[in-house]
Design a protein around this nucleic acid. Structure first.
Length: 181
DNA sequence: TTACCGATCGCA
DNA sequence: GCGATCGGTAAA
């Protein structure tokens, strides 16, 4: 298992979104290790992407998206659900990849993780993780075990109104923990 | 200071 | 189909 570092995320957002498929999301929580294979992602860019929080200026919420890559961007959506993103692009340029679905690999393996709000609940990810570097020492990171997805699909993003026509959603075909349909 | 509404989910 | 429930954002 190789932990993905800053270089992996310091690239074009769509490329990172696609390559995150098949990687392992790892969370250490109260002495336990939770892991899941990423099966669905979406790219959110900077100012040319109307659906992105970073399409306008820097604000207290979206500032993490403009910062260095390889950092977690977590925010509350609809007053209920935390969304987990990995920040991409070089420092100063906005971009992030929303993790929308993971296939659980550790003990509660049967729990639902097919959806961005569900997986943060399962992995105990909250606003506390916002701005944290994705690394071993922070207890939240993404690693590679060398496995590559068999078949990647690319579609429009789901669950948004603005910018919905842009084909920035990626998922692994045939995986049960892909959200929506 | 207020009003609006969103990268969702689960239940009817 | 709809309600739950929070907080960022922009307008006033």
């Amino acid at each position: 298992m190789k932990v993905l570092g800053r270089n992996f995320f310091n690239r074009a957002t769509r490329k990172v979104a696609k390559e995150l498929l098949g990687k392992i999301l790892v969370r250490k929580y109260r002495g336990k290790r939770l892991a899941g294979r990423i099966v669905e992602t979406e790219a959110y860019l900077g100012k040319n992407d109307p659906a992105s929080h970073a399409c306008r200026k820097i604000t207290p919420r979206n500032i993490v998206m403009f910062g260095p890559p390889g950092v977690a961007y977590v925010y509350l959506c609809y007053g209920f659900h935390y969304m987990l993103n990995a920040v991409t692009e070089k420092n100063g340029k906005a971009g992030a990849v929303l993790i929308r679905g993971v296939e659980p690999l550790t003990v509660p393996a049967d729990k639902a993780a097919n959806g961005p709000g569900k997986l943060t609940k399962l992995f105990k990810i909250t606003k506390k993780q916002n701005g944290r570097v994705l690394a071993l020492k922070t207890g939240l990171y993404i690693a590679s075990d060398g496995m590559k997805p068999l078949k990647i699909r690319n579609t429009v993003r789901i669950g948004i109104k603005k910018g919905a026509e842009l084909p920035f959603r990626y998922y692994i075909e045939g995986k049960q923990h892909v959200s929506g349909k």
